[in-house]
Amino acid sequence: MLQFIIRRTLSMLATFFVVSVIIFLMMHAIPGGPFDGYEMPLPDNIKAKLMAQLGLDKPLWEQYVRYMWGVFHLDFGVPYQSPGETVMGLIAHAWVPSLVLGGLGVLIGAPIGILLGMAAALNRNSWIDYLASGIATLGLTIPVFVISTLLILVFAVWLHWTPASGWGEPRRWILPIMAYAAVPLATYARYARSAMLDTLNKPFVTVLRAKGLSERRIIFQHVLRNSAIPMITIFLPMFVGIATGSIFVEAIFRVPGLGAYFVSSIQKRDYPLEMALMLMISALFCISYLISDILYALLNPRIRLGGKAR
């Protein structure tokens, strides 16, 4: 087990290293530095001085090493757009709305999706099965900004039930949370359905039925436990994906979260902020996959440890 954890960790670290190099190089490939694109171009000597001050005149690899050294000390530099703050401070600040709204979205969407998927699996080919499949397909295929727009149209514009923008008083949270909940709801509905069906079709369930166990006990004691593994392992990556802020949900509902900062940092060519966001999100994905893999290995007694990594 320990060997497995160490191997997965090393592999993830390698992945993260490559990703960080790629992100770093991509940032530097963006045409135009932070001092271009203003209406009044800076004089060359001042520009050079500023570049030297920010370390932008050093060779690329040195810039990379310096940067990553800082990253390990949680120092992502100073954002160009507001030099009075640090990138870290800005992110810490912007994280709150994303985490609250996205987190609530997952926490509300996932259980509903699981219940829906279970109901669908237990009543195969009934209306509830079709409903669940329909919702799952819609939620997984329709872009989140389409869903968000429709939510505003229906609940804010036509029905006047809720305000259309989403931060501040909790009443404003309703619509963005619904938008955030769509993806986890759909994902879990689909996962729960297929995991339950998988388990229900296993011979051991037939044996339990033959033994005369009540359907209730079969489902709650045996089927659920056996279907839970895939559902647990997808939770973390999904949580990371959503709680790091959806660009669209935040743009549409005017939530001042991470996604919103990401868009503005791109528009303003704010390298430090952009890079910090990309790196942090990638790192979180790496960690969540790693934990999922380990959880999967721990929960599934059949997995062959020491086997080849997927």
Partner: peptide, 22 residues
């Protein structure tokens, strides 16, 4: 497979956004 793993770790929309500006 390692390359594909890289793609799974990078959020596609953010990367696309970046590439689109690029």
């Amino acid at each position: 497979m390692r390359i594909i793993e890289l793609f799974s770790v990078v959020p596609p929309l953010l990367a696309a956004l970046l590439l689109a500006t690029l």
